[in-house]
């Protein structure tokens, strides 16, 4: 059987890619995609921990399901905000959205 550590390594790698994406990408849609990657990494973590550590308790499974649902809601609101910016400015590049500064 595949050991737990493999899943955790995959999750950590995916999470790191997501964090890098958020910090390095300039397009708001790409940032949103990177956030989704981070949430997927969390889900891999949760399901792997659930399967290997507490397969009889449902909490890990339930947690992962709830993360799905919340991620969907977050993406919906996020895309709506991005569209409203796009309609006003014809751009979704986060750097160009800078009316307000220090």
């Amino acid at each position: 059987m595949i050991p737990l550590s493999w899943y955790l390594a995959l999750s950590a790698a995916l999470f790191s890619v997501g964090v890098y994406g958020v910090l390095a990408r300039k397009n708001a849609v790409a940032i949103l995609m990177s956030v989704e990657l981070m949430l997927n990494a969390v889900n891999i973590n949760l399901v792997a921990f659930w399967h290997y550590l507490t397969p009889t308790a449902v909490s890990g499974m339930a947690f992962a399901l709830i993360v799905f649902a919340v991620a969907a809601a977050e993406a919906a609101v996020g895309l709506a905000l991005i569209i409203s910016i796009y309609r006003r400015r014809q751009t979704v590049v986060a750097e160009d959205v800078n009316l307000m500064k220090f």
């Binding site: 949103l32 981070m38 973590n45 949760l46 921990f49 947690f63 977050e74 910016i85 986060a94 959205v97």
Partner: peptide, 28 residues
């Protein structure tokens, strides 16, 4: 207002994902 919504969302989604990773580790 549109800009403030987008900025709030991008910061918020990012930080809450980091927090959630912490939650998943605590559970693990």
């Amino acid at each position: 207002s549109a800009e403030s919504g987008l900025k709030y969302f991008l910061f918020g989604a990012f930080t809450s994902s980091l927090m959630l990773y912490g939650f998943s580790l605590l559970y693990g």
